[in-house]
Amino acid sequence: MSETLELVRETPLLQLSMQQAINRALGEILEHDDRALIFGEDVGVLGGVFRVTDGLQQRFGANRVFDTPLAESGILGTAIGLAMAGFHPIPEVQFDGFAYPAVNQIITQLARMNYRSRGRLPMPVTLRVPSFGGIRAPEHHGESLESLFAHVPGLKVVSPSNPQQAYHLLKHAASMPDPVIFMEPKARYWNKAAVDLADDQDSISLEGSVIARPGKHATLVAWGAMVSRCLQVAELAAEDGIELEVLDLRWLKPIDEAGLAASVSRTRRAIVVHEGPHTAGLGAEVAALVSQSCFDTLRAPVERVTGFDVPYPSGDLEDEYIPNIDRILFGVQRVLEYRRG
């Protein structure tokens, strides 16, 4: 009987873009969890400015997928109240830079309600935020807020780098009792890749970091859209005889200290790459963790290749701002040629 079932089971392997993968995950969450609700600006009738919630209102009705006024503080306040009443809200803040009006709700209520109520009011809220730059958009549409949110006790922060991870990490985040900031790299929304839909906890890791490409000479640590760029860099470095490991950090709070230490203790060199500004960026945290865990084996100080300490620039300048292949290669070169002395 069970053998027969095994034979007819189709392998659910699909080519999906990240927006399609997230759309599919949201649909499944709504289907299986009748306390899940999706709301935000334009997520209902329009189906999201990036089509991520396309068709969900038609499928599940306007009571479960609904449009809100243009007021992020209100969106998060609504989510907090709904969570207190036993719902599982999945609000969307339309763009990273629109999260600022909601920061008070996020930090002073969402992140600490569970703590404040001694566990009686958990906040199972998954806040989706299309994040980072790379799409030539105007101000407030290209910001990196991970270090801001990672600094807040009570929040979890995660950023998928491909459709497969987006699908599974979103479903995982929505099943958690804690508030999760789900940072979708909008520059990667349109890239298609194979997605294994099987919810097989053994084959798909949901916690911690993953090695996106193994290598031995140095580790590139990245998340979100920078992972695919670092994979390109690793491919180019291989032409020069340098084998770079790419560690996709994925969870930015909590950071996978053990996975980070394991990779860098093998390669003995690390370059952390992120889009956000340099000072107090999450790269500083990564560098500190690596220094602490790998101090004896490190061959060079941890290099940071990041955005600059300026407001995120207009679209025509973003190629100069976001770490590009050459800037990352320079970082690799500096780490490789470093000599103690």
Binding site: V49, F95, I135, A187, I325, D326, L329, Q333
Partner: peptide, 27 residues
């Protein structure tokens, strides 16, 4: 088209990676 950008921004073009920097180190 569904895969066009949203209200703002443009879909990033996938291009072959270009480099000017070459790595040269003695390991």
């Amino acid at each position: 088209a569904d895969d066009s950008a949203g209200i703002v921004g443009t879909v990033p073009q996938e291009a072959a990676p270009k480099r000017r920097v070459r790595l040269s180190v003695v390991l």
